[in-house]
């Protein structure tokens, strides 16, 4: 019964908080749709959950989607191991004004779109090239001066990223992105 004493007196390497599972699995990216009562503080509850428990938020959008029922839809893109993603969903489900939590990443195919505005300030060939690329990407010009354009683009985050990269050498000065809105495909 008496084996060697494994802990050393006078050392502090044994912390009570060093208990994490070393067998962590691969990190996944999930898009969650959370239907909530549109009441004061509900967004703070959701964000507070993520910050308080150390979860990631890659993207977050929120708006009222049912004016009569006062329901809002929060779309959150998060990353974590499968265990963490499950825990995030369970924790979201525990919040009293949360009605539904959908994991669009596992519930079947879904559509993800993002809207972005890019301000490009340039002249000469660069200005022409920017306009030509905007046409290829089906971006709209929503503001123009003799020195600048503001492009509006809608698409997947990857498409928006790609357009942004192309605009960078062509005089990109500012951008604004909405974050992802997502819905499951089909009925």
């Amino acid at each position: 019964m008496a084996a060697a004493l494994n802990i050393q007196k006078g050392t502090s390497k044994h912390s009570a908080y060093d208990l994490r599972d070393p067998n962590a699995e691969a990190v996944e990216r999930h898009t969650l749709a959370v239907i909530v009562d549109n009441e004061a503080g509900v967004l703070a509850r959701v964000i507070g959950l993520f910050s308080g428990r150390g979860y990631n938020i890659d993207s977050l959008t929120v708006a009222e989607v049912d004016h009569e029922g006062h329901r809002s839809r929060i779309t959150i893109v998060t990353t974590g191991t499968p265990a963490v993603i499950d825990q995030i969903k369970a924790q979201l489900g525990r919040i009293v004004p949360v009605h539904e939590v959908h994991d669009l990443t596992v519930e079947g195919p879904s559509v993800e779109r993002e809207l972005a505005l890019f301000k490009v300030v340039s002249g000469g060939d660069k200005r022409v090239e920017a306009l030509r690329l905007a046409d290829i990407f089906r971006a709209n010009v929503v503001d123009s001066t003799l020195e600048s354009f503001v492009f509006e683009i809608t698409g997947t985050p990857q498409k928006v990223d790609a357009f942004g990269e192309l605009m960078r050498p062509l005089g990109l000065t500012e951008m604004a992105r909405t974050g992802i809105a997502a819905l499951s495909r089909g009925s």
């Binding site: 494994n6 802990i7 044994h14 912390s15 009570a16 060093d18 208990l19």
Partner: peptide, 8 residues
């Protein structure tokens, strides 16, 4: 001791 399993 913290960080040890039950049988220790």
């Amino acid at each position: 001791p913290s960080g040890e399993p039950h049988h220790k």
